[in-house]
Amino acid sequence: MKSAENIEKIVKNLDLDIDTIPQTDQAVLSELLDAQKQSMQQHSAFTLPNIRRFIMKSPMTKFAVAAVIIIAVIIGVNPFGNSKANVLWADVTKSFESVPFFHLTMYIGQDATETKKIEIWKSTDSQVRAHEGNKVFFADFFRDTNKITIFDRSTKELLNSDESTPMFIRLLCKDGHFSLDTLTKSLPPQVKGITPLETIDTAASRETVLFEAKHESTPEQLKIWALRESKLPIRVLFTDPRQNEYGDFFFDYSEQKDVKFFDPKAFLSQ
């Protein structure tokens, strides 16, 4: 006689193996990609009216747009009239784009699952090296914006494509251009804007500025700390309390790695 707990355990731990036939897989996938393409085309045809024509059509909209531009110029010149809050998010992303090299450490986790640690280094020549567990990733975005090579760190064997780390590398580097925007925009969906938070006057707040973005309808939250002087981001923290999910990203700009560090040939010859 099995108890209810036993039944629960049995059903939970069942190893129900299933496989798919590659040819059918390919057919289904191309159907999906076609469906996605058609839907995107249809939707953009319906939802992208000519904004200029819409504005110029009515004197009311012309007046409203002019007012918005004037307000935006005033805010841009003197944000909040407060010297402590005058680091704008645009300044931070601009500073990050011009930084010659950086080291990023990412901690990603959910509930009680083990935290995944990914380290990414960027060189002055847009070369990237990343570590995740026993894997090492190399990319040279100056020469090829798509190629990421993966090796086993101990055996130095070439590995097949890995999913998550290259995805994060590509989020930071789009078309050979390093940007913080793609990373932050991708985290909490539907975030309308990132705004500086007024923090109490502490030694830390004199050195850093804190930006925050909240999701419209969920408790997802994004916080970004940046240095006031250099306007460089030092930490990006994403949290979703519903599943105890988080992504904690730390940026460091202090150590410039040697050219050999980014060279896969040098790694293989070691």
Binding site: L32, I108, M167, S186, L187, E245, Y246
Partner: peptide, 21 residues
Amino acid sequence: MLEDKVLIWKFKCGSRDALYR
């Protein structure tokens, strides 16, 4: 998973790779 959030964002931006993944 955080990776899924990124995938959804890419998918909503029209990424074919995200849908494939």
